[in-house]
Simulated scan of single mutants.
Amino acid sequence: MNRKIGLFFGTFNPIHIGHLIIANHMAEFSDLDEVWLVVTPHNPHKKKSTLLDNHHRLDMVYKACEGYEHLRPSNVEFNLPKPNYTSTTLAHLQEKYPTNEFCPIMGEDNLKTFHKWKNYDVILENHEIYVYPRISGGKVENEFKDHPKIKRVDAPVVEISSTFIRRAVKDGKFIKPLLNQSVWDYIKLMNFYR
């Protein structure tokens, strides 16, 4: 059976309710059958010092996805050559699961720079891209504005950042409402971000 899988990439450092709201909305209110939360090993644009080990971030994504029928954690990028590009991940997944259709999910802000991605034209040729709104995104007025492969999903706008959460934890703030209960417990247990 041909299944349509949304791929929601992130360092998830940590995963928070904003990620879950968007992923779940994509799974429930679009034609995607499932959303895989793909934990990216290390983004060269992010400072590595604040990035928890891959397995800790994956553990948190597993904990956060419990009870969500259509959300699945994925570590597919952990074993791909570095630096890794979305186009490589898509090619790998398509080869491994030839009957599935894989669709990257991105915020509108990322669409603005999508033309700078490695092999972006190949991605667009072979995959639909699902876009959710961002306050910081602004409207995209470039070649992707009315592209037939770009599907806009009117998801809730959630402006919570993992950076904000890490800072708040470091400052001893009580931010439990921003995290799934088991993720909150795990961060406290492991003494992360302090």
Results as ranks from 00 to 15, higher is better:
6 G>T: 03
6 G>F: 01
8 F>V: 13
12 F>C: 13
13 N>C: 14
14 P>V: 12
17 I>L: 13
19 H>V: 04
19 H>S: 02
20 L>W: 06
20 L>S: 07
25 H>M: 02
25 H>I: 06
25 H>R: 04
26 M>A: 08
27 A>F: 07
27 A>V: 10
30 S>D: 00
32 L>H: 07
34 E>P: 04
35 V>N: 06
37 L>W: 07
37 L>A: 02
39 V>P: 10
41 P>H: 01
42 H>D: 02
42 H>K: 06
42 H>N: 03
43 N>C: 02
43 N>V: 03
43 N>I: 00
44 P>T: 09
49 S>T: 08
54 N>T: 15
61 V>T: 08
61 V>M: 12
62 Y>A: 13
64 A>Q: 11
71 L>H: 13
74 S>R: 11
74 S>T: 14
76 V>R: 05
80 L>E: 15
81 P>T: 15
83 P>I: 07
85 Y>N: 00
85 Y>S: 00
86 T>S: 09
87 S>C: 11
88 T>N: 15
88 T>Y: 10
89 T>G: 05
94 Q>R: 10
96 K>M: 10
97 Y>A: 14
97 Y>R: 14
98 P>E: 02
98 P>I: 05
99 T>M: 09
101 E>S: 11
101 E>V: 11
112 K>C: 12
114 F>V: 05
115 H>Q: 08
118 K>Q: 03
122 V>P: 02
123 I>E: 15
123 I>L: 14
125 E>Y: 09
128 E>P: 12
129 I>C: 11
132 Y>R: 00
133 P>C: 06
134 R>P: 01
134 R>V: 04
136 S>I: 00
137 G>E: 01
139 K>V: 09
141 E>K: 08
141 E>T: 13
142 N>V: 03
146 D>C: 10
146 D>P: 14
147 H>W: 07
147 H>C: 10
148 P>Y: 07
149 K>T: 13
150 I>Y: 10
151 K>I: 04
152 R>N: 05
154 D>Y: 05
156 P>Q: 08
160 I>F: 00
161 S>G: 03
161 S>K: 01
164 F>T: 08
165 I>L: 14
165 I>E: 13
167 R>E: 15
169 V>E: 06
169 V>Y: 09
175 I>C: 11
179 L>K: 13
180 N>S: 09
184 W>K: 01
187 I>Q: 04
190 M>P: 03
191 N>Y: 01
193 Y>T: 06
194 R>M: 08
